[in-house]
Design a protein around this nucleic acid. Structure first.
Length: 498
RNA sequence: GACCCCAUCGUCCAGCCAGGUCAGGACACCAGCCUUUCAAGCUGGGAACACGGGUUCAAAUCCCGUUGGGGUCGCCA
């Protein structure tokens, strides 16, 4: 590693589906690294022990690999600055927290969650902008250590300046100023002994030799904290570059969310999009080729790429344009044999067919029944007849709520197999006070577009988690949708019952 | 609400930094052509510089304000 070598990273958190926003960040990091002859690193930020799962991590690697964004160092292939999974770096973070504690640049905070909540509420009333544990900041080290050793739970907070101004320099945004008084004493070590994002991120970026931090704009407000950590440790901070956030195609243009759009990369694969088309489309958001070409390869993008050319307005993720581009790839880049190979890679292959065949066979009068019977396995959207989409004795809204609860349960399901799905639906039926058969009927309609089809749980397994959840969300919309308010109430109810 | 960011057709971009072409392209939409149908393709059309001040001979472009939108304000990342 030379001083001048560019090193960038994408650092997703394995807490759910691999998000197209992650792909977007990864693409621009990748293009920048390649355009400068540098390295692109994948780091897994799994310090949230409650929400991180190995399944999600595997899905992220799978999704980025499918897109063809090859990382030079990462959790699966290692590298000179590993490990690349933060949960395996706990000792490193504790060491660094100890340094800050010894310097007096961090302090233990013994406030309970309840006390914190109360104090925050008080502060809000007084109009104070940020939280700093003034008592904790002044507590003599001896007393602090004694209480910790006595087993009293604590977190560690960094000491941020009480006043003055912090000026950050962003490659795209230029100078951005923030008052230190508006920045709280960020917790850097949680009571479970794991670091928070801010500490782990700074320590790893330094130790891994990251030269440019290219990430979503949601982070721009926490740069002062990060700069202060670099200063505490005596490290040279990297160049910061905050990219616009992808937006929903709704009235408000809010941050891209799965409630309003498909956001899982794996969904797009299952729906029949080509990785090069998805990448190309992402490259069109906030950036363009010098000649305004719409269709270009990754290599062409890299050759023309300049970070400073990125447009700062948050782009709407418009599936319609993605479909048009994808269509161009299919029409222009393949002959019949090539297209056949893509179809095989996608779903028309012996492995998939052999899963469907045993489900279809008992239901075939003629071989030609096959097409109609199994079409929904090879589709993205399925026709939704509002008449057929109903649950006897329940309102449309009730059914929408049931679909939503199913979506949440499916999200939490770690292995998406017919056996576990069966158990999940049995539980759902019981909770809803419904006979299983009555409950599943509308699910057939939502997932297959018909009231009769191949067996539900096996069919769901073949469709896959991403496609199933997407079709259920579309069914919710077809039923009139759930307002944000109702959704929030339902979520609360759902969380309390688990 | 406080703070931060942003602002060109319905959507994605070009033009802005180094003020001076009827504001250009693409998606979507509409019409026509082609075609047994559909798709594709071709041709044409409608469609934007958020608003108000300033600087200037001249402002989409520079400055200020307003409005609008987004983000952040977690022992999530």
């Amino acid at each position: 590693m030379t001083d001048s070598e560019v090193r960038v990273r994408v650092a997703p958190s394995p807490t759910g589906d691999p998000h197209v926003g992650t792909a977007y960040q990864a693409l621009f990091n990748y293009a920048f690294a390649r355009s400068r002859g540098g390295k692109f690193i994948l780091r897994i930020e799994d310090t949230d022990r409650a929400r991180s799962t190995p399944q999600s991590e595997a899905a992220i690697l799978e999704a980025l690999g499918w897109l063809g964004l090859k990382w030079d160092e990462g959790p699966d292939i290692g590298g000179p600055h590993g490990p690349y999974r933060q949960s395996e770096r706990a000792a490193i973070y504790r060491e660094h927290v100890q340094i800050l504690l010894d310097q007096g640049n961090a302090y233990r905070c013994f406030l309970s969650r309840e006390e914190l909540e109360r104090m925050r509420a008080e502060q809000r009333d007084k109009g104070l902008p940020a939280f700093k544990d003034l008592e904790g900041r002044q507590r003599p080290e001896e007393e602090s250590r004694r209480r910790a050793e006595a087993g009293e739970p604590f977190t560690v907070r960094m000491k941020t300046p009480l006043d003055g101004e912090c000026v950050i320099d962003d490659l795209l945004h230029g100078e951005v100023r923030k008052d230190w008084a508006s920045i709280d004493d960020q917790i850097i070590l949680k009571s479970d002994g794991f670091p928070t994002y801010h500490l782990a991120n700074v320590v790893d970026d330094h130790l891994m030799g990251i030269t440019h931090v290219i990430r979503g704009e949601e982070w721009i407000n926490s740069v002062p904290k990060h700069l202060e950590l670099y200063r505490f440790f005596g490290w040279k901070p990297p160049v910061f570059c905050h990219l616009p956030l992808l937006r929903n195609n709704d009235k408000n243009r809010s941050k891209l969310s799965k409630r309003k759009n498909p956001t899982s990369i794996l969904y797009y694969r299952r729906a029949g999009f080509l990785p090069q088309a998805l990448l190309n489309f992402l490259g069109l958001l906030g950036w363009s080729m010098p000649g305004e070409e719409e269709k270009f390869t990754l290599e062409e993008m890299i050759a023309a790429f300049r970070l400073e050319d990125i447009n700062l307005g948050g782009p709407v993720f418009d599936v319609q344009k993605l479909k048009w581009l994808n269509g161009r790839y299919i029409r222009e880049d393949y002959d019949a044999a090539g297209l056949r190979r893509e179809l095989e890679k996608w779903a028309i292959n012996p492995e998939t067919l052999e899963k469907i065949l045993p489900l279809a066979q008992p239901r075939l009068m003629t071989l030609s029944d096959w097409g109609y019977l199994t079409a929904f396995f090879f589709a993205d959207e399925v026709p939704l007849d509002p008449q057929a989409l109903e649950l006897k004795g329940r309102s449309d809204e009730d059914l929408a709520r049931l679909f939503q609860i199913a979506v949440w349960k499916l999200e939490a399901l770690r292995d998406f197999r017919s056996e576990t799905l069966e158990a999940l639906f049995a539980e759902l039926a019981e909770q809803a006070g419904l006979k299983l058969r009555d409950l599943t009927r509308p699910f057939y309609v939502a997932l297959t577009g018909r009231s009769a089809a191949t067996p539900l749980y096996q069919s769901m397994e073949i469709l896959g988690s991403d496609m199933v959840r997407m079709r259920l969300r579309r069914a919710i919309d077809a039923l009139g949708g759930l307002s944000a308010k109702k959704l929030k109430a339902l979520e609360k109810e759902f969380a309390s019952r688990r």
